[in-house]
């Protein structure tokens, strides 16, 4: 007799658990306002990334096309993947030959966005930008030169 009771008990509790589950999904079906999808390419205008989001490394330039990079290579050393390549040149400052930045090469394809280069920079010349649409059709386009053509170092940065 007990087994018969258990048999029907099992059916009852089984069906009850199924209906509980269906209530959850039914709730969401009847509440389409709770939909959380963001339609990405359409919401480009309003899409705002968090300020700390690490998208790519950029070298900051001011309105006079000047940057703060001294070419010290601290970021190049800090980078774990060889993403950053600093090419130097020698410039005359007060009659002395001084190391300066010639080309700031950034290989985006190798970057893991670890952010180690940012605190390594002694002059805060580079920051992480919020951009994230990096897809291109040719891999070579991912190798970027970060210093603008004709740019030079700001006064007073050593």
């Amino acid at each position: 007799m007990r087994s018969v009771i258990n048999y029907f008990k099992e059916i009852y509790f089984g069906l009850k658990s199924l209906i509980t589950g269906m209530r959850v999904t039914g709730h969401y079906f009847t509440h389409p306002k709770e939909i959380i999808t963001q339609q990405y390419p359409e919401n480009r205008e309003t899409l705002k990334m968090f300020e700390r989001f690490r998208g790519e490394v950029v070298l900051l330039h001011n309105e006079n096309n000047e940057h703060k990079c001294t070419g010290c290579s601290a970021c190049e050393v800090a980078c774990p993947n060889g993403t950053i390549e600093i090419i130097h040149k020698r410039v005359d400052v007060d009659g002395r030959k001084v190391k300066a930045l010639d080309t700031f090469v950034y290989h985006l394809q190798m970057c893991t966005m670890c952010g180690l280069c940012i605190p390594a920079c002694p002059t805060d010349a580079i920051v992480m930008a919020n951009t994230f649409e990096h897809a291109v059709f040719d891999r070579s386009k991912l190798t970027k030169v970060l210093n603008n053509p004709g740019s030079k170092i700001m006064d007073g940065i050593k």
Binding site: T25, Y28, F29, E34, I36, Q39
Partner: peptide, 13 residues
């Protein structure tokens, strides 16, 4: 569409 709304998605749009 039904599955999408149940799963709090929009489905094909």
């Amino acid at each position: 569409k039904v599955s999408a709304v149940i799963q709090q998605r929009l489905g094909p749009m």
